[in-house]
Nucleic acid binder design. Sequence first.
DNA 1: GCAAGGCATGAATCTACAT
DNA 2: GATGTAGATTCATGCCTTG
Lengths: 259, 259
Amino acid sequence: MEEYINKIIQGNCIEILKELPDNTFDMIFADPPYYLQLPKGKRLKRADGSEIIPVDNEWDQFKDYDDYDSFTESWLKECQRVLKPTGTIWVIGMYHNIFRVGKIMQDLGLWFLNDVIWVKIGALPNLNCRRLTNNHETLIWAVKNKNCKGYTFNYQLLKEMNNGKQMKDTDWVFGLCKGNERLRDENGIKSHPTQKPLKLIQQVFLTSTKKGDLILDPFMGSGTSAVVAKALGRKWVGIEKDNKYIEVANERIKKQKIC
Amino acid sequence: MEEYINKIIQGNCIEILKELPDNTFDMIFADPPYYLQLPKGKRLKRADGSEIIPVDNEWDQFKDYDDYDSFTESWLKECQRVLKPTGTIWVIGMYHNIFRVGKIMQDLGLWFLNDVIWVKIGALPNLNCRRLTNNHETLIWAVKNKNCKGYTFNYQLLKEMNNGKQMKDTDWVFGLCKGNERLRDENGIKSHPTQKPLKLIQQVFLTSTKKGDLILDPFMGSGTSAVVAKALGRKWVGIEKDNKYIEVANERIKKQKIC
DNA sequence: GCAAGGCATGAATCTACAT
DNA sequence: GATGTAGATTCATGCCTTG
């Protein structure tokens, strides 16, 4: 394992997970593809005529629900295996995928601690006025199985962070990743379409890890979890398929001074 | 159908659903058992020694996940069948069950419009300080299938109810059903352990129905949805297995003057 | 009549440790 | 491992009593 610490492993998530030893990680944070199933070729426009750029990347394409489910079960099963009995796993998603992901997690025997609502500040309003505005994502927090005890939950710290009151599963209000935090290439194009905000990931790590803990991110993307892990004194292992994202992430981590 | 309008049908939910004709209802609101799986015989206590009374009713007991899933699939399948192509279905749940329910809904071809977070005011704090406080329930809002158009969404009304801003899926903040609203027997015992607040159900109905619409509630319980339907000028059909709950509900509806 | 304080209570997947 | 017992801990709301 030592050779992987604080590094991004390039390759297929499931294949790489299979090479990692049992009961290794104190915490896993997974931000998998959401399988958005957007209508192809159509793009919503804002009132000023500008186009909304949707997430239509190749990595979010699946043949059908079965295809998505079998992918999901495979990586979750390996994550469960490499998770310590005292560890916890977080998975983030939206209504497109999180219900499928959640049922598969339960079927694998993962035992839920909470489902946390990230209330997104600055989310896109609903442009066609035919639905409620999507304003949240859901994080599932779970232990390896029903009988697992001794996981880390920094109750007191979170209470302090929440003005002296117990942190609730609905108190997670954070802005989207925008402005200086958002990574862009030389042409101003977003380096990653679904870059998560540092503050959200930080709160996840502060909730469920101690200094020196080893964290796994099987869908590393632009490297947000590595940046937060480094800043908080946690060790980390990342997995990412796309070399372009790995470059972005490595450069970001190298440059990093403060979270 | 006429003989069922504005009445509670007593009996097994699935069997009764099977007798109802296709494409009948403008809206379905379902508050099924959550399958809480609480530890048996143990009861949490408050600092003052008083006991927390959990939901351990017979109707929330299932053999295992498979048992719960097959029950869930059966009633959802019938609900999908009796739902108009222009209708919508709401299902409420918590992290114990909502992910399973959601995946089964998607597998049946129901197409999600939103997942709505009911932020609960006055929820039980977390007493052992080993998890985040459970402070929400999740409602899934869906149409009969992916191609359905023309469902009712009272966008403008909800915007007005939300101080002129688009109603978001996270703006649903309502107190629990307590105080005078909570139905109790002559001994002060709750008539139903999970009575839902009128305001929540009212917002659901105002979101997705018009005056005169026909609403189905397959798990009627203490009759909250009937009370709201009546007050808002909607027609309704309820299904409930337990005669005790039916008595409570009928008495409540009879007494009703204003919502 | 009004303000302040007491008190009950809410869909809860409890935890740690000993035997 | 499975089972049993003791332990430590909480917040918002609304009704009711008291002053």
